[in-house]
Every structure is written in structure tokens, then in C-alpha cells.
Design a binder for these strands. Structure first.
Lengths: 221, 221
DNA sequence: ACCTGAACACCGTTCAAGT
DNA sequence: ACCTGAACACCGTTCAAGT
């Protein structure tokens, strides 16, 4: 009975999985700054030092939490018959995951070579290969797509770091208002864009960006 | 003589500008975690509380430092006769700025609507307009390009957070080696990519990605 | 108006001590 | 082997007190 957490249903035993799941719960509710080892220990009814027996440090914990979410997303994405569709579905899956767990955005974009990113890279890469992009251009095509996805990821991450009591459309309106007050000569374009800001749909926008890059990718086939 | 810092050369008086410049110095040498109000106060030979008279908080200070660098980059970029070239030059300017001041990467991608980002948005937007993209597609085209730039930004930011004693090519080799040990079935593509990783040039790669998006942008003209 | 520096309320991480 | 919780070495920020 040395490994009781395998053989019985005791919920007391700490494990990396339980820690990661508790972390995700805290992250979803309170954001990255809300995830402290003290808060985690209190939720898991243990001492803060106990967590270090299972997890190296906070950075590793955040990477593990991100991987847990992204692994779920990728498992749920079926490979489409048209590779372009696979890319779109993967991209939208990541988009929706960031919307559900906003802290993932910062995590993905701040560490592009962690496991979670590799899962995305693998799926996108396979699809780009299936499109017929030649070997020497693969790297370029794939990173362009990944950059697009992660760029939006961080954009969303920023929006999600807002206080919870601020409405999203209020926030967009506030940004638009701020832009409208910029210098008319120096910021002519931004001021024009301000008018379009409140009405636009992030998800549609995101997909349109992916499609734009796909046109470029197809051009090198 | 109420505003001595305007009329004479005294270097003692604190000002937001001096604080920002000192911050950039610390950030370049020690990274974001090295920038503490105590380190800043010591460098400026003042008390840590004094800084708060000129700067609201650390987040604002980081945004101001980022804006200071990006403003310099944008001022140095001449508008090219071919709008596509303007986009390329702006993008490369941002790329080089991130290479010189790596902390900017995280800053840009974590707050896409700060002043520094707006400066970039304005230049890119004007050029996309000049290409002849119709009004309704402007937003999509511009954000796709910005996402590409910021995606790479954060990628570089990650690489720059490495300890200073690690060589860059050693680091790439280490990543390639780690990738090569991944599951051959689950990570077939990533393993193939690993071989190309050590040899590739970031800057060329980056420009190739921009060009890919430009093909897409031109397609909706 | 501007600066000082101690004090406050936190952090992540470590580690002797327990079981 | 795994857990406890006090302790350490930091942070950002505030604020009474100075000039």
C-alpha cells in the first residue's frame, strides 16, 4: 500500500494532477496573480510547502496547467479531410480555450516552446504539410500561422486581465473613445479604426486573419 | 526658479524622463525582474517613494519605457514609396528593437492597446490603406499583420528571458535535441522540424512570415 | 512641490521537523 | 515518502515626516 492514490479513492493524497486541477480553478476565477501557493495550499487543505514535493515551481505549474487545457482541446479536434479546415478548427479551438481560460493567452505567448505550444505546432504543421508546402518553406508557413494564433492569444489575454465588473462592450467603447481623442494628424488611421472597434466580432476577425495567412501559404504550394 | 529642471542643467531633479531612461538601462541589463523600485531608486540616488511622485506604478512605468523605445524606432522609419516596403521596414524595426531591448516583446504582446502599440498600428494601418484594401477588410488585414509582428515579438521575448550565460545556438540545439526525443508518432512533424531549427535565421524567417501575410492582404485588394 | 525611508501587506521558495 | 508551517529574502506601494 505504498501508492495508495493509485489503488483507492482517497481524495486526501496530493498529486500533480490534483494540484493542476485546483490551479486551473483558481486561475479561471482570480487570474494569474490570484494563483499563489498559499491560496493553492488552502484550497487543497495542505501546507504551501507540500506543493513543492509535486511541482518544481510556479512557472512549471503554469505550464502544466496550460498543457492540461490545450491537451483537452487538441484531443477534441478531429482531423478534417481538407487540411485548411484542420487549421481553422485548431485555431478556433485555441481561441475558444483562451476565451474560457484567459490566463492561457499570456502563458502560450510568453513561452512558445512549452509542451502546450508543441501540441498546437504539431497539428498545424501536419496540416500545412498536407497542403503541399515544400520542405524549405515549411518552417516559414507554420510559424506565420502560429504567430497569428499566438498574437491573437495575447490580445485576448490582455482583454481578460480587466477587472470583472467591467463589461466587454463598455471596455471597447472606452478604448474607441480614447482613440478618438488622439491627435488627428499623427493618429489619422487609428481614429478611423476607432469607429469600427465597438461593432466587431473577435472570433470572426480572428478567423479572417487565419484565412488571410492561408492565402499566403497556399501561394507557395 | 520654480521649474529649475527646465532652465538649468542640474541632473539632480527627478523627472519622468530620467526615470524612464534609468529604467531602460536596468531593463536591458537585468530584465523585467531586475527592474525594482529599490534598484531604480538606488541608480537615481533617491528614495523608492520619490519615484511614485512622477510615475503611477510599475505597469505604467513599463508602458512608458516601451513607448520611449518604439517612438524612437518609428521616428527613424521613413515612409517608403511602396506601401508594402513601409510595412516591411516597420516590422523589421520592431524586430530589431526587440532584439536590442528584449523586455519590449512581452510588454508589447501583453498590452496590445498601449501607446507603443498604437504607434505601430498607425504606421501599418496607413500602409495597408495605401495598398488599396477596401474599408470593410481593413481591420482584418491590419490585425493579421500586427498579430504576426507581436507573435514573433513574444517568441523573441521568451528567448531573451534566458540566462545570459547560455549561448543562443547552444539553446536552439538544446531545444532541437529535446524535440528529437518526443514520441515519434504523436510528434512526427515537430521532430522533422527539429532538424531545421538550429540553422534558421530569425530575422529572415520573420520577414518571410510578413511577406506571406502580405500576399493574403494583396489578394483582397 | 517634491523627496525620504521606514513600514505594510504581500509574494515564491526553503527547510527543519514531523508522520 | 510525503507533509507541515514557520522562516527567509524579497517585492510593490503607502505615508508620515521632512525640505
Amino acid at each position: 500500500m505504498t501508492r495508495r492514490n493509485l489503488s483507492n479513492g482517497r481524495h486526501d493524497a496530493l498529486s500533480e494532477e490534483r494540484i493542476v486541477e485546483a490551479s486551473i480553478g483558481i486561475l479561471d476565477r482570480d487570474g494569474v496573480n490570484g494563483l499563489t501557493f498559499r491560496a493553492l495550499a488552502s484550497r487543497l487543505k495542505t501546507g504551501s510547502g507540500a506543493i513543492y514535493w509535486h511541482v518544481a515551481d510556479k512557472q512549471t505549474l503554469l505550464a502544466a496547467a496550460t498543457d492540461h487545457v490545450i491537451a483537452g482541446v487538441m484531443a477534441a479536434v478531429p482531423t478534417q479531410s481538407v487540411p485548411q479546415d484542420t487549421i481553422r478548427v485548431v485555431a478556433l479551438g485555441v481561441f475558444d480555450a483562451i476565451e474560457a481560460h484567459p490566463w492561457i493567452g499570456a502563458q502560450l505567448s510568453s513561452n512558445p516552446w512549452q509542451r502546450a505550444s508543441l501540441r498546437i505546432l504539431e497539428r498545424i504543421g501536419g496540416a500545412v504539410q498536407a497542403i503541399g508546402v515544400p520542405e524549405h518553406a515549411l518552417f516559414n508557413a507554420v510559424t506565420a500561422l502560429i504567430n497569428c494564433i499566438f498574437g491573437v492569444a495575447s490580445q485576448h489575454a490582455a482583454a481578460s486581465r480587466l477587472p470583472r465588473d467591467i463589461d466587454r462592450s463598455d471596455h471597447l467603447a472606452a478604448i474607441a473613445a480614447a482613440w478618438a481623442q488622439l491627435d488627428p494628424v499623427e493618429y489619422a488611421f487609428v481614429r478611423e479604426l476607432a469607429a469600427q472597434l465597438p461593432g466587431h466580432d473577435d472570433r470572426t476577425q480572428f478567423l479572417a486573419g487565419i484565412n488571410l495567412v492561408l492565402v499566403g501559404v497556399e501561394s507557395i504550394r
